[in-house]
Simulated scan of single mutants.
Amino acid sequence: MSTAAIAALIVRYGIVMLFLPFSALDKIFSFDHAVRQAQQMFSPRPLAITMLMIGLSIEIVCSGAIVLGIADRAAAFVVAGYCALTAILYKQFWKPGDFFADPEGKGRTLFWDFLKNLSLGAGFLLLIIGTDGSGLQPFLDAPFASSHPYGR
């Protein structure tokens, strides 16, 4: 494996390691807590469990696809959307009402977490468009194709 391929592997793992293994394992080992957290947005327990399982699947399957380079652009697109949705659903900085009143309030903390989620999502979008100037066209032409991050 070339130095460039090793660097690509490290960077790809670095961008997904929040999800795989950490967040995925947290959902598995603290399942009841994760369900209660999901119930904040999806109140019937069966719906919360369903949404939690969808999130867990995204974290495992899409993160693995990104690291392995298998349908990695499509996986990155899904994870970018997941980051945006979790920001909107769980990092609602506007709700506590203390954003402007208290620099140490819950609103400010949620705001920074909201921005972190969106920034991480933007990083996944970068995997889709690449840094080689090819832009969005390869993804639009073949969304489930591999970007061949480790060579062909």
Rank of each mutant, 00 (worst) to 15 (best):
Asp72Asn: 10
Ser147Ala: 13
Val78Tyr: 05
Ser63Tyr: 02
Leu126Ala: 15
Ala38Asp: 05
Leu68Tyr: 09
Ile70Tyr: 11
Lys95His: 07
Gln39Lys: 15
Val61Gly: 00
His148Ala: 14
Pro138Ile: 04
Lys91Thr: 06
Ser63Gly: 15
Ile49Pro: 12
Gln39Asn: 07
Ile128Ser: 01
Met41Glu: 12
Ser63Asp: 04
Ser119Leu: 11
Leu140Ser: 13
Lys95Met: 12
Gln39Phe: 08
Arg45Asn: 13
Gln40Gly: 15
Ser43Asn: 14
Phe99Glu: 02
Gly123Met: 05
Met17Trp: 12
Ile15Glu: 03
Ser57Thr: 12
Ala34Trp: 06
Ile15Pro: 07
Leu9Thr: 05
Arg45Ala: 14
His33Asn: 13
Leu56Trp: 03
Met53Lys: 01
Phe100Pro: 00
Ser30Gln: 15
Thr131Trp: 14
Pro143Tyr: 08
Gln92Ala: 13
Leu115Met: 15
Trp94Thr: 08
Ser119Thr: 14
Ala8Val: 08
Leu89Tyr: 04
Leu85Val: 11
Phe139Leu: 01
Met17Ile: 12
Leu52Ile: 07
Thr50Phe: 13
Thr131His: 14
Val16Gly: 03
Val67Phe: 04
Ala8Ile: 03
Leu25Arg: 03
Val78Glu: 01
Gly121Gln: 00
Gly97Cys: 05
Leu89Gln: 05
Pro44Tyr: 07
Gly105Tyr: 08
Asp26Ser: 12
Ser63Lys: 02
Asp113Ile: 08
Val67Leu: 03
Ser146Cys: 11
Gly105His: 06
Ile10Cys: 10
Leu9His: 05
Cys83Asp: 02
Ala5His: 13
Lys116Leu: 07
Ala48Gly: 09
Val67Met: 10
Glu104Tyr: 15
Ala145Tyr: 06
Ala48Met: 03
Pro21Val: 02
Ala65Gly: 06
Met17Lys: 10
Gln137Tyr: 10
Pro46Thr: 04
His33Val: 10
Gly135Val: 10
Ile28Asp: 11
Arg45Gln: 14
Ile6Cys: 09
Ser57Ala: 10
Leu25Asp: 01
Phe29Val: 15
Lys95Leu: 15
Asp113Met: 09
Gly133Cys: 11
Phe19Gln: 00
Ile70Leu: 14
Thr131Arg: 11
Phe42Ser: 12
Leu9Gln: 00
Ile88Trp: 14
Tyr150Arg: 02
Ile88Arg: 01
Gly133Trp: 09
Ile10Tyr: 09
Ala87Phe: 04
Leu118Thr: 08
Leu126His: 11
Pro44Gly: 08
Val78Lys: 06
Thr86Pro: 03
Phe100Trp: 15
Cys83Trp: 03
Phe124Val: 06
Thr3Phe: 07
Thr109Val: 13
Asn117Thr: 00
Ile88Thr: 10
Ala76Ser: 08
Ser134Val: 12
Ile129Trp: 12
Cys83Glu: 03
Gln137Ile: 13
Thr3Val: 12
Gly14Glu: 01
Gly151Tyr: 00
